[in-house]
Simulated scan of single mutants.
Amino acid sequence: MARISAEQRKKIHETLLNKSKELFIQYGFSKTSIDDIVNACGIAKGSFYSYYPSKEELFYAVLRREEEIKNKIISEVMSESLPPKELLMRFFEISFKAIEENEFLQNLYQRGEYEKIVKRLPKELIDEHAKEDLESSLEFVKFLQEKGVTEEDPEIVIGLFRMIMLLPLHRQEIGEQTFLKTMKKMIESLSNDLTQHK
């Protein structure tokens, strides 16, 4: 059997990520099998394991790729020339919209599968992700502090950002009619509080 080229391998990997994402959105992690994934990709089951040792690690790769939107948002906000409060509100608004439009992240949290998947992942993957997430978040908070946005402890600021980012995933629980008004009010209040230095 002829060996596949690096280009072909890259193409298969991209198909694997795209097709599995579609299946995870449609059926959820638990109801999507490795057989479903390889059939959708048109590859042998053995080929799957040459890319990922488990369905959990494939899911994690899809998740990491979806979470790259965070770094794009940070880059976009850092390139803007706005007063402190407007800069912060812009960050929240862009982030809010990105999460609202991301079907994969919406389904992941609404189905309550995240914790279950994370428990099955190797500890080093989780630790690496946490470290990278903290580093990029700290870099952004430092940028905000240099712009005069906040004097708060960076850990508190990062915690507040995470809290706001998770709210769109609980839209139905909060209530469709009041959600947008509540979200707008929270973003405005938080932006005011973080830009009012003592």
Rank of each mutant, 00 (worst) to 15 (best):
F24R: 00
F24P: 02
F24I: 00
F24E: 00
I25N: 03
I25C: 04
I25G: 04
Q26Y: 03
Q26K: 10
Y27Q: 14
Y27M: 11
Y27T: 12
G28T: 13
F29R: 05
F29C: 09
S30P: 01
K31C: 09
K31I: 07
K31T: 12
T32K: 04
T32W: 07
T32G: 07
S33Q: 03
S33V: 01
D35P: 10
D35E: 06
D35K: 09
D35I: 08
D36H: 08
D36P: 00
D36G: 03
D36T: 06
I37P: 01
I37R: 06
I37F: 04
V38I: 14
V38K: 04
V38M: 02
N39K: 12
A40L: 02
A40D: 02
A40I: 04
A40W: 00
A40P: 09
C41T: 11
C41F: 05
G42H: 06
G42Y: 07
G42E: 07
G42P: 00
I43F: 06
I43Q: 10
I43N: 10
A44F: 08
K45I: 12
K45W: 05
G46A: 15
S47V: 15
S47A: 15
F48V: 15
Y49W: 14
Y51L: 15
P53W: 00
S54H: 07
K55A: 11
K55F: 08
E56Y: 03
E56W: 05
E56A: 14
E56C: 10
E57R: 14
E57I: 15
L58H: 05
L58F: 06
F59K: 04
F59Y: 11
F59S: 07
Y60T: 01
A61N: 04
A61P: 02
A61M: 02
L63R: 03
R64D: 03
R64N: 02
R65L: 00
E66Q: 09
E66N: 10
E66H: 12
E66P: 03
E67K: 12
E67A: 07
E68R: 09
E68T: 04
E68W: 01
I69N: 13
I69P: 10
K70M: 10
K70A: 12
N71W: 05
N71M: 05
K72S: 10
K72E: 07
I73G: 06
I74F: 11
I74V: 06
I74A: 04
S75T: 04
S75G: 03
E76D: 13
V77P: 09
V77L: 03
V77F: 04
V77D: 02
M78K: 13
E80H: 11
S81M: 14
